[in-house]
């Protein structure tokens, strides 16, 4: 008989994590999605729910990838992939695009991260490796500027190290910024008490989840 601890629950895959985030985005929100799993979120927002996606390079109302014969070389997203513009969309220059971000006009930004601390600090731009040139892009503006910052990431690193930590060990992107974390195992609100579990994949216990976090996690109230 297999080890029961490994068969009682199934972690979400990348698409499952993106779908879980998409569930919580209501109609009418303006949303910026970071590179990686966050980019997949828009695939799981039903077309009849009007959510407007912003791309830092000056696209408001970004739509899905074009058919191969409909590519416009001048229309890309933050990840430099070809995209489309929805009916009703608009283009702005870079200072206006970052006024949208930094001026608190976005309802939500979803980013990936290496670590989130229980006080809402986020690390997602640098690992501290010395001979690699650092690169930040719009991460610090997005983390500091959006009305809400949600993070979507694996519960642990590939080596099994927890990503939900008491204090960051990687260089911070922004302090006290994260409001919610979605992982392949659970959803957490970041509150004054620290991480509060909102929901978990079926079959997982709070003790098992705690074992995968360095920070103390709290049961839902």
């Amino acid at each position: 008989m297999p080890d029961t601890a490994t068969v009682r629950y199934t972690p979400l895959d990348r698409a499952g994590m993106a779908a879980r985030v998409a569930q919580d985005i209501p109609e009418g929100w303006y949303v910026n999605l970071g590179i990686g799993i966050p980019t997949l979120v828009s695939d799981f927002v039903p077309p009849d729910r009007e959510v407007i996606f912003h791309s830092e390079n000056g696209v408001l109302g970004m739509g899905p990838a074009p058919a191969p014969d409909k590519v416009d070389p001048w229309l890309i997203n933050a990840g430099k992939q070809h995209v489309t513009l929805r009916t009703g969309g608009a283009y702005v220059h870079h200072a206006d695009s970052f006024a949208i971000i930094r001026g608190g006009h976005l309802d939500l930004c979803v980013l990936g991260a290496y670590q989130v601390a229980e006080n809402g600090d986020i690390a997602n731009w640098a690992t501290g490796e010395r001979d690699v040139a650092p690169a930040v892009g719009g991460a610090m503006d997005l983390a500091a500027g959006a009305k809400r910052l949600w993070v979507v990431m694996e519960q642990t690193t590939k080596k099994g190290e927890p990503r939900l930590v008491k204090r960051l060990t990687y260089p911070p992107t922004a302090l006290g910024a994260v409001k919610r974390v979605y992982t392949n195992l659970a959803v957490f609100d970041v509150t004054e008490r620290g991480f509060v579990v909102r929901d978990m994949v079926p079959g997982l216990t709070l003790e098992e989840l705690q074992a995968k976090c360095e920070a103390t996690i709290h049961p839902p109230v």
Binding site: E56, H94, F98, A133, P134, V136, G137, G138
Partner: peptide, 18 residues
């Protein structure tokens, strides 16, 4: 960059635009 032949000033994108 690795050879130390170019100087880099890294600026957050919004701060760069502003």
């Amino acid at each position: 960059y690795k050879a130390g032949k170019i100087e880099l000033e890294l600026v957050p994108q919004g701060t760069l635009a502003e």
